[in-house]
Simulated assay, not measured.
Amino acid sequence: MNPDRSYQEAHTDFSRSLSYGDYLALDTLLSAQRPLTSAHDETLFIVIHQVSELWMKLIVHELQSAMGLLAQEIIDPALKMLTRVVRAQEQMTNAWEVLKTMTPADYLEFRSAFGQASGFQSYQYRLVEFLLGNRNPFMMRPHQHRPEHHRLLEQALTSPSLYDLSLRILAQRGLGIPAEVLERDFAQPYTPTPQVLGAWLEVYRHTEAHWDLYYLAEKLIDVEDNFRRWRFNHLTTVERMIGYKRGSGGTAGVGYLKKALEVVLFPELWQVRTEL
Rank of each mutant, 00 (worst) to 15 (best):
L26M: 05
Y7Q: 08
L170H: 05
R111G: 09
V98I: 15
Q155K: 11
E202S: 13
N226S: 13
L54H: 12
L79R: 07
F186C: 09
W230M: 02
E268T: 09
D22G: 03
I221K: 03
T251D: 14
H40K: 04
E42L: 00
Y256K: 03
E224S: 01
V238G: 05
F232W: 09
Q144R: 12
D41E: 14
Y107E: 08
H11Q: 10
Y256M: 01
A217D: 13
Y244F: 11
F266G: 00
N134F: 10
L29I: 15
S159I: 05
L26V: 12
I177W: 04
A95I: 04
D212V: 10
E180Q: 14
R146L: 02
T193Y: 03
E262I: 08
A156D: 10
S161H: 04
P189C: 01
L165D: 08
L157V: 15
E97F: 10
Y107M: 01
Q8I: 14
T93M: 02
Y244Q: 06
L261T: 14
N136A: 00
A179K: 10
R126V: 07
W55H: 10
H206T: 12
G249W: 09
Y123T: 12
A39F: 07
K219P: 01
S38N: 14
F232H: 13
A187V: 10
P137R: 00
A209I: 14
A95V: 05
M139K: 04
L197M: 08
F114M: 02
A252W: 12
D225Y: 10
Q155N: 14
L269E: 11
Y214Q: 02
L69K: 12
P35Q: 00
H145P: 01
L152P: 14
E148C: 01
G176F: 03
L108Y: 15
H40C: 00
R135Q: 12
L201D: 13
M67I: 05
S166G: 09
I177S: 03
E218R: 06
D222W: 04
P267C: 00
G243T: 09
T28E: 15
G247P: 08
K259S: 11
R141V: 11
I46W: 07
Q64H: 11
G250V: 04
L197R: 07
E90G: 08
M1K: 06
Q33G: 14
L82E: 11
A217N: 06
L26T: 13
F130D: 03
S52Y: 08
V98S: 12
M241C: 01
F110T: 13
R184D: 12
L182D: 14
H11P: 11
